[in-house]
């Protein structure tokens, strides 16, 4: 049975799209047939980060309106087997998504895919609600600062009250905390919240900690999900995260300030 995972946060710019791309790619690399769905109608970022913006012909809204079928619309990744993108529309607004329409598309995807990753827009309005409504699991992307933690708390409230599982009184959405843009140096100086601080406040299990990394910026500039840069700290941290999502036990890395040794300086950290 397909698993629907929403990548959400409340706050914008915390790394949802980066994480959707990285996690989706990681799942496909592990051999699981995966589709990443861009729910950020009107902004359309996912295709840029995945480097497939020039191959977008039809989009999510076209499928919902019956103007194109999924086969015509899904973009198959050229680098990774088993990986597909369902792009968002650039021209419509968020109201173009209806619950019936989204449900129909997700049901159809569920026949074919093991994982459906929903890249949520920011905010707590209709678009974000639509992205989380059908989810089985949620990756709550949080930066180690107060306003992001607050917004994540807000979204956790929505997950437990506004989702289909909540409305039907089914088992709750499985919640995972993903801390991104983590900077151990700034944490040590007290300029950022620590992993423990954030975990204490949000009180949900930690699935990953992604360091603040130049590799992410390089990756998005070149249209490569950072998971493909397996030398990089962020790439490795996302692969660890994917492995944990698949149920494996993996120790956390990149949590403390590392003294750069000679080898690190040569090979990059």
């Amino acid at each position: 049975m397909a698993k629907i995972i929403v990548v959400t946060s409340g706050k914008g710019g915390v790394g949802k799209t980066t994480s959707s791309a990285a996690i989706g790619t990681g799942l496909a690399l592990s051999g699981h047939k995966t589709v990443i769905v861009d729910f950020d109608i009107g902004l359309r970022n996912l295709d840029l980060i995945m480097g497939c913006e020039r191959r977008v012909v039809y989009d999510f809204v076209n499928v919902i309106n019956g103007e194109a079928n999924l086969k015509q619309t899904l973009i198959k990744d050229k680098r990774v087997e088993n990986l597909f993108i369902l792009p968002a529309s650039q021209t419509r607004d968020k109201d173009a998504l209806t619950k019936e329409g989204v449900e129909k598309v997700l049901n159809e995807l569920a026949k074919d895919f093991e994982f459906i990753i929903c890249d949520s827009p920011a905010g707590i309005e209709a678009g974000a609600m639509m992205a989380l409504y059908f989810a089985d699991e949620a990756v709550v992307v949080t930066n180690p600062e107060v306003s992001s933690v607050r917004d994540s708390d807000r979204i956790l409230g929505m997950l437990s009250s506004k989702s289909r599982r909540a409305e039907r009184n089914e088992d709750a959405i499985k919640e995972h905390l993903l801390l991104t843009r983590y900077n151990p140096e700034r944490v040590a100086k007290g300029e950022m919240l620590s992993v423990e601080d954030v975990q204490e406040i949000l009180a949900i299990p930690l699935i990953g900690v992604i360091p603040e990394s130049q590799a992410v910026l390089n990756a998005s500039n070149s249209g490569q999900p950072v998971t493909l840069d397996q030398e990089s700290d962020a790439g490795q941290a996302y692969l660890d995260t994917v492995s944990r999502l698949l149920g494996n036990h993996v120790d956390f890395r990149f949590l403390t300030v590392e003294k750069k040794g000679l080898l690190k300086r040569i090979f990059g950290g």
């Binding site: 607050r150 807000r154 409230g157 437990s160 406040i201 009180a203």
Partner: peptide
């Protein structure tokens, strides 16, 4: 969670978790 409001009308209230900012 943040943004949620609970009112115990004519009652005591017990919360078995945290009350978020």
């Amino acid at each position: 969670r943040s943004g949620q409001q609970i009112y115990a009308k004519g009652a005591d209230l017990i919360v078995r978790g945290a009350v978020g900012a």
